[in-house]
Design a protein around this nucleic acid. Structure first.
Lengths: 224, 224
DNA sequence: AAGAAAACTGGACCCCGGTCCGTTTAGGGT
DNA sequence: ACCCTAAACGGACCGGGGTCCAGTTTTCTT
């Protein structure tokens, strides 16, 4: 009883976990099927909800994206929104999904130096630059989609990024604890940190970029 | 109107900011005055609230610390809780305050290698070890007190730690962007990350400690 | 084609964090 | 001892996230 709030953050809110197939979506990159085996009406509502959410973001900023407002704007019941996306964060994550996937494709199979083909250290450098740049653009959405603390490290996209960094690090510094180093590097690229440093501390993106290059150099032991 | 939620996260919720003197509390370390110039009844209620909150944490875990429950347990109105502590996070932070201050005293003016007297790199190593150890103990409380994303980097204790790390880094690596490096190091010690790695990924604290030592070595360029 | 099972829907409902404001009380001044 | 004012109090109130379930719609089976 007392743990209702907590449980709901860990277990799916409904008996049948809505969209059990959405998570993998982020991993299979080639296919562009946005609605995995969804019933016709469900798919239609899903599209309407995403469209409505996008409109609300554009109109009132990310803070205006209320679950109720989205439901109303899509002419749909509130329960439907939750069934489809689990919770607010899930909805926002779905909204970011498109750009997320594009980004993943870029560093997993795109042209070097971001994609395969360049030496690992250079790919690391490019990855940071790309992430910073991407964050600079859609910072507000990324902030809104930031999962509540207890799930910050279990979100799907994060794992893809982590795996990627681990891969590169293993090539660059084979005898280090690359898992931990990857987490360190990701910490530097945390959207919330970026927001803090640029918006609240007034640092320039250039400085953050330089900081990233320096950090990569230090971590990989490739001082210039 | 639409920004009410956002504003309340930035501005104090009441016209007269409750406890405008609490923040500095964390900075003046010698004095042990827990209730800065509070009216008698206010001080009494403050104590009762903290006691009640502590009891609730012990009984139902951090998740059971509802503002209403705390108020009821302390035989006090809900408004009083908010007037005193601003919000839930504020209450939890006040709960952690004691250990927080002890820790700050330890690295600001305690014995080496944590406190002054040891070479900076060694102090960095000790700092990480101490933080990891401390987190291992009171992880649940630290998690509960984790501020919502938009304030993760503006909490008072964080600034003390950051300043400390910047100080040490400036000595160890004078020609680096120590502000940014400090943030990187703090990222590694984030309670939420520690929780994720130890509890969810099953890593041992020893491994995290080794990772910290390695990270410090890499960042400061002092390879063994 | 028809019936059954599974999936989806919508909105009433609950809980909690946070706010407001009319009332009470402490404690310094006279 | 009394008053006066700033401060503190408390609980009604609000909005939003999340849940539930009775009823509807789709899809599968035969």
């Amino acid at each position: 009883m007392l743990y209702a709030g907590f449980m709901s953050a860990v277990l799916p809110p409904f008996p049948s976990p809505q969209e059990p197939l959405r998570q993998p979506e982020l991993l299979q990159l080639g296919t562009e099927q946005d609605e995995p085996c969804l019933r016709a009406d469900a798919a239609r509502n899903r599209a309407r909800l995403l469209e409505a959410a996008a409109r609300l973001v554009a109109e009132h900023g990310a803070a205006g994206v209320t679950m109720e407002a989205v439901a109303a704007a899509a002419k749909v019941g509130k329960g439907t929104v939750f069934r489809r996306f689990g919770d607010r964060t899930g909805l926002l994550m779905a909204l970011m999904d498109h750009s997320e996937r594009k980004f993943q494709a870029a560093f997993l199979s795109g042209p070097p130096p971001l994609g395969p083909g360049a030496p690992p250290v250079e790919r690391l450098r490019a990855f940071g630059r790309a992430t910073l740049c991407r964050s600079a653009e859609q910072l507000d959405l990324q902030l809104a989609a930031e999962p509540s603390a207890d799930r910050r490290f279990t979100a799907a996209p994060r794992n893809v990024v982590r795996a990627h960094l681990v891969l590169l690090l293993r090539q660059a510094v084979p005898d280090a604890d690359c898992e931990l180093l990857a987490h360190t590097l990701m910490g530097y690229l945390d959207p919330v940190l970026i927001h803090h440093l640029t918006r609240q501390c007034g640092m320039s993106v250039e400085r953050l970029e330089a900081g990233w290059l320096d950090l990569v150099a230090r971590v990989t032991g490739t001082r210039s």
